[in-house]
């Protein structure tokens, strides 16, 4: 028995769109976008104390770091020959270090190098990690197997020690530091994205997207990836905090960035020799800046988590 064709319904139904047709109401370059983004940022900032403090700290570091040359006229490499280890004064706000360089100028100029390295490294690891995680989660199979085993090896021993070994072995210091931090961050993003994909892969809407003939890449990118964003944003803040910490830890041990380049870890290393004789300022001030920036990122991570998941706490 055949069902009678419902000609009326078939005629009135909209024709099936071709696979890959973009949704009708996406207007990418609306002029109101930046305004909406600013409003969103403001709403986030005022949502909690942590959000406000975290955003303020990070924004302050970004602005001061970008404008360091304008804001602080003292050259971070200038040696004030007669003023070795001069305590904080009106002339040198944070005092001078063992080479007679101005600690304040060095601390401020170090923001650039620490931020640029961390942001670059985390950006690389997000791109690589999310891409690999999407494929591993969606495709599975041997690719996923191999990838996960490699990640096991990478995460099997303390990250800091692996980083030290890599950077010490190579001569290109800044590139090596970026490379190794990205390498250590990639597993985090792979595991996170893969986990998200596994829980979404069989969702009804993904099935629908597949049924209408979307290519796997398109499904991964347009349908699954956007839903992995919230945890990704939280993890980005966490990893930025961690990366800043690793950059300076490496320099502190004496691999990677070296004195006289203004970098917090290197400065703390250089100043550590004078701590026991009471000259605390060459190592305390850069450490304070380092801690403040890491704290800023950590606050942001906590606040974003609360903001996206108000149920918790």
């Amino acid at each position: 028995m055949s069902t009678p064709p419902n000609d009326k319904a078939a005629a009135s139904a909209r024709p099936m769109p071709d696979a890959g047709t973009p949704p009708a109401h996406v207007d990418h370059d609306r002029p109101g976008r930046p305004k909406a983004a600013a409003r969103g940022l403001w709403r986030f900032m005022t949502s909690s104390m942590a959000a406000f403090t975290g955003t303020t700290i990070v924004l302050a570091f970004v602005v001061v770091g970008a404008l360091a040359d304008v804001l602080v006229r003292t050259d971070p490499l200038q040696v004030f020959g007669s003023d070795l280890l001069h305590p904080p004064s009106a002339e040198h706000w944070f005092g001078t270090d063992g080479n007679g360089m101005d600690v304040f100028a060095r601390t401020i100029h170090a923001i650039q190098i620490d931020l640029v390295i961390s942001v670059t490294a985390v950006a690389i690891s997000i791109v690589v990690g999310v891409a690999l995680g999407l494929v591993a989660g969606y495709r599975g199979g041997w690719f996923e197997m191999v990838l996960l085993r490699v990640m096991d090896v990478l995460q099997a021993f303390p990250a800091l020690i692996l980083a030290l070994a890599v950077v010490a072995a190579s001569q290109e210091s800044i590139a090596a530091v970026i490379f190794v931090i990205a390498l250590l961050d990639i597993p985090v993003f792979i595991r996170m994205t893969r986990g998200q994909v596994l829980s979404l892969r069989d969702a009804m809407y993904v099935e629908a997207a597949r049924a209408t003939g979307n290519k796997p890449w398109r499904i991964m990118w347009r349908h699954i990836m956007p839903n992995t964003l919230p945890p990704l944003i939280i993890q980005t803040a966490v990893r930025l905090a961690w990366s800043v910490m690793i950059v300076s830890s490496l320099a502190f041990v004496g691999v990677g960035i070296q004195v006289p380049t203004p970098e917090w870890g290197a400065m703390i290393r250089h100043g550590s020799a004078y701590v026991t004789s009471g000259q605390w300022w060459p190592s305390v001030f850069p450490g304070l800046a380092l801690m403040l920036l890491v704290l800023g990122f950590n606050l942001l991570a906590d606040a974003i988590q609360d903001h996206l998941d108000p149920r918790k706490d």
Binding site: S248, F252, L290, M291, L295, D302
Partner: peptide, 15 residues
């Protein structure tokens, strides 16, 4: 605790 988490151990040791 958040401040503690944000302190790099080598700097903490020096303090």
């Amino acid at each position: 605790t958040l401040a503690g988490v944000s302190i790099p151990i080598f700097w903490g040791a020096l303090l």
